[in-house]
Design a protein around this nucleic acid. Sequence first.
DNA 1: TAGCATTGCATTCCAAGCTATGCAAGTGTT
DNA 2: AACACTTGCATAGCTTGGAATGCAATGCTA
Lengths: 155, 155
Amino acid sequence: MEFITDQSAGYLVNHLARLFARQLQDRIKPLGLTTGTFPALLVLWEGDGLTQRELIDRLDIEQPTLANTLARMERDGLVIRKKDAVDARAQRIWLTDQARALRAPAIAAAMQVNSEALAGLTEAERDQFLALMRRIIAGMQKDALDEVEDRQETG
Amino acid sequence: MEFITDQSAGYLVNHLARLFARQLQDRIKPLGLTTGTFPALLVLWEGDGLTQRELIDRLDIEQPTLANTLARMERDGLVIRKKDAVDARAQRIWLTDQARALRAPAIAAAMQVNSEALAGLTEAERDQFLALMRRIIAGMQKDALDEVEDRQETG
DNA sequence: TAGCATTGCATTCCAAGCTATGCAAGTGTT
DNA sequence: AACACTTGCATAGCTTGGAATGCAATGCTA
């Protein structure tokens, strides 16, 4: 059985993700940001005051991963957490002014990474690439969901 | 400035990489393997007795990352490290019988993950997807190399 | 309303990746 | 030969990601 890395989607995706992460990190480090905060920030920039649970529902990330990320973000002055008025278990996440101010430069950095990465592709190829990824992601998420449901029925 | 995650290559690649990693981990955990060992194993299965340096040259991974991975692999009985006869600094990496025996099932697992992930695509779309990734990777590696060279000239 | 199940979050422990640094062994230069 | 430089690897410390677990607050149900 042969395994050719150049023809393995998983291998290439992993490699590509590391290349993107390195690029993004280089560009947002001067802003005092790290890559892991990015997904959470993108959601919060659209509207903060969410609970951790609400954030998780918008990010395909495990709860402990987000909890850790939020802890680092609080330590670094990007967010503050206030107890929910109604539900004493929940904490609502609020952006600091500092985090709000970083929105424009951070997004500019990310968009620049994207455009440089895809610079060798035509407009059509870029669209194709994004569309293919969206379809693969949707399929894999569905598969994962089905597996969870199967386990619940069986177990 | 807008940022739409569905149209961000970096965001989608990161997400996709996590989905692939979860799938692969589920499948190779029963074999006693973890995802991080995979790239090194793929090289070593083609021929072991390499030094760490030679492995790094075949993997776009930083040296400390590989050193850690090899330490875990040695701990788990996948490889042994023997001092090089000529160069006392270098250590040559040898697969154990156990690691050799895992080749077929591990590769089968990875190929299954790939084919399930791409199941919703036509043959042509799969080829396109892989080809696009290869081109983007090549471009980003070239960019990264150029930056290093620029820094050396300047600094 | 008492007891049980669920929910929201934190904590622990691990893998995997990175940067920065250290150090011993080899190489090259004068 | 002495010195500086380079190379090969290890270590420390961090982020990002996950699984497993714990626990308090809430919700449900008999």
